[in-house]
C-alpha cells in the first residue's frame, strides 16, 4: 500500500513568507506530481507566518484546473495551519472552483497541464 507523503511548505519556499505566485508554483508542482501518482499528501504549513491569495492560488487553487474536486478532497490535507489561514485557503479553494467553472478556462488549464507533462517526458 502506498504511504501518504508529507510536504513542508517552509522547506519548499525556504522562508516563512509565502507570498509570491512563483513560490506557490513550486509547491503546486510537487502536489500535482503526487496527486498524479494517486498518493495522499499532507501539506504542512509549520513555521509559515504570512500567506497571500496569490501564493495559495498558484499552489492549491491551480489544482482545480487539473484534478477532480473529489479527488483533491480525498488525497490532500493540510496540517499545522492557523485558523485564519484555513479561512483564507477555503476562500482560495471556493474562488478556484468558481474560476474553473468557466469551460474555456478549464480547457486552457487542461491544455497547459498536458503541455507541462509533455515537457516533462
Amino acid at each position: 500500500m502506498n504511504k501518504d507523503i508529507s510536504i513542508s511548505v517552509f522547506e519548499v519556499v525556504g522562508s516563512p513568507l509565502c507570498v509570491a505566485s512563483g513560490d506557490g508554483q513550486k509547491v503546486h508542482d510537487r502536489l500535482a506530481a503526487a496527486l498524479r501518482q494517486g498518493r495522499g499528501v499532507s501539506l504542512s504549513f509549520r513555521n509559515v507566518t504570512t500567506l497571500t491569495s496569490a501564493f495559495l492560488n498558484a499552489a492549491i487553487g491551480q489544482l482545480y484546473g487539473g484534478f477532480d474536486e473529489n479527488r483533491i478532497r480525498e488525497l490532500l490535507n493540510v496540517a499545522d495551519m492557523e485558523s485564519d489561514d484555513k479561512v483564507l485557503l477555503r476562500r482560495v479553494v471556493d474562488t478556484a472552483k468558481w474560476y474553473f467553472r468557466d469551460p474555456n478556462r478549464f480547457e486552457e488549464a487542461l491544455r497547459s497541464g498536458m503541455e507541462d507533462e509533455d515537457g516533462d517526458s
Binding site: 505566485s21 506557490g24 508554483q25 497571500t52 491569495s53 496569490a54 492560488n57 498558484a58 487553487g61 491551480q62 482545480y64 484546473g65 487539473g66 483564507l88 476562500r91 482560495v92 474562488t95 478556484a96 468558481w98 474560476y99 474553473f100 478556462r105 486552457e108 488549464a109 497547459s112 497541464g113
Partner: peptide, 18 residues
C-alpha cells in the same frame, strides 16, 4: 468579489476583495 481579468491555469479574483 470573484471578478478577475486573469486567464490561464492559475485562478485569481480574490486579492482586492480580501
Amino acid at each position: 468579489k470573484n471578478n478577475t481579468t486573469k486567464q490561464g491555469p492559475i485562478p485569481g479574483g480574490l486579492g482586492l476583495s480580501l
